[in-house]
């Protein structure tokens, strides 16, 4: 198992894949892991330590451990992977069945004071339909016990670009407007920790860009922002760090490019354009680092055993074959391929 994860990706907790250990164990056995909690996880503003959550026989989250620091972290996974369960546990709205969820070192839940530090935008499209967007933000500000709720509500409405619709009832809002109203409520008390469950759902591309911009700016101010999505492109564009959940387990965590490089048991594919594709292909096939070469549409599609050994030999092959390299690029660096790899394993 560890050979697959040769080394720890930068920024990822060393034991970021706590679910691994539990996998060999049958479902009936205890799901907690005896492994010690890594120090950097426990010290993170948001720490999830050997957390499991099950509903009867259904395991929603299975022995997950990670820590999240400042910046934007994307929580990625298909529907039903346990993202919302995890979000609710982080927000203290759902106790874990096992393990611990720590927010700034204190257990989440049962402590209303914590909500001065956390802003949550839930996935569910629930709303007080009879309130206007402005009234909703104002109510949230007042319930957050802010000294100047009017100013805070105004600021939040402006941040999410909802001014035009702020005086209409939420009941008449489009999905995108509802999302922004929820975000305004989550932001209204300027929390250092933001938990956003599927925040871009229903937003049009322009709003999406605006919101990504906003989140990037807020992250730059040192906030901890965790957002979930099942859309890879969103995560790829916004998050420096990703957590990938599959079927309740944490499948990967860290920088996704770093993750990709760690997956050495799957061939990497590269696209090569050269002055003489056939000669280059002949030379490449002779190399141990190359598993297969295909001529596709005026380019070479190369499957390499692993990233580093291929990139070391490719220049030498070209020189020996007398071929000029026009283009060399990895074709599966996208988060999509990382994700497909993790899900299909």
């Amino acid at each position: 198992m560890n050979s697959r994860w040769a080394g720890t990706p930068p920024g990822a907790p060393p034991d970021g894949r706590g679910g691994r250990g539990a996998r060999a164990v049958t479902g009936r056995q205890p799901l907690w892991s005896p492994a010690p909690v890594p120090a950097d996880v426990a010290a993170s503003p948001l720490a999830v330590v050997h957390v499991g959550r099950w509903y009867g026989n259904v395991v929603a989250v299975n022995d997950v451990t990670f820590g999240i620091g400042p910046g934007v972290t994307g929580l990625l996974g298909p529907n039903g992977a346990g993202k919302s369960t995890l979000m609710h546990m982080l927000a203290g709205l759902l106790p874990p069945s096992s393990g611990q969820v720590l927010v700034e070192g204190r257990p989440a839940g049962r402590d209303p004071a914590l909500y001065r530090r956390i802003g949550l935008s839930p996935e569910r499209d629930a709303a007080y339909e009879f309130l206007t967007g402005r009234e909703f933000a104002l109510l949230s500000a007042r319930l957050a016990r802010l000294p100047d709720p009017d100013a805070a509500a105004r600021r939040a409405i402006a941040l999410v670009d909802l001014e035009a619709a702020a005086d209409r009832q939420i009941g008449g809002y489009s999905k995108g407007m509802r999302q922004r109203a929820k975000l305004a409520a989550a932001l209204v008390h300027d929390p250092p920790i933001l938990l956003l469950d599927e925040p871009f759902n229903g937003m049009d591309p322009r709003q999406r860009l605006h919101m990504m911009d906003l989140l990037r700016r807020m992250a730059a101010e040192g906030r901890v922002i965790l957002f979930s999505s099942h859309i890879l492109e969103e995560v790829e564009r916004l998050a420096q760090q990703v957590l990938v959940m599959v079927a309740g387990r944490l499948a990967a965590s860290g920088d996704y490019r770093a993750l990709r490089h760690l997956m050495t048991d799957r061939p990497h594919t590269f696209l090569l354009r050269t002055s003489d594709d056939r000669a280059m292909a002949a030379g490449l096939v002779a190399e141990d680092a190359v598993l297969g070469v295909q001529l596709v549409d005026g380019a070479l599609d190369v499957r390499a055993a692993d990233y580093s050994s291929f990139t070391r030999v490719v220049a030498g092959v070209a020189r020996r074959a007398g071929v000029t390299l026009y283009e060399l690029r990895p074709t599966d660096e996208s988060l999509e391929s990382v994700f497909a790899y993790l899900v299909n394993r």
């Binding site: 709205l93 209303p112 914590l114 909500y115 956390i118 569910r124 629930a126 007080y128 957050a144």
Partner: peptide, 15 residues
């Protein structure tokens, strides 16, 4: 039922 209770629960107010 509607799920709006969440908006009250995530505020620093006594239950």
């Amino acid at each position: 039922e509607d799920g709006t209770i969440v908006y009250l629960l995530v505020r620093p107010i006594p239950r």
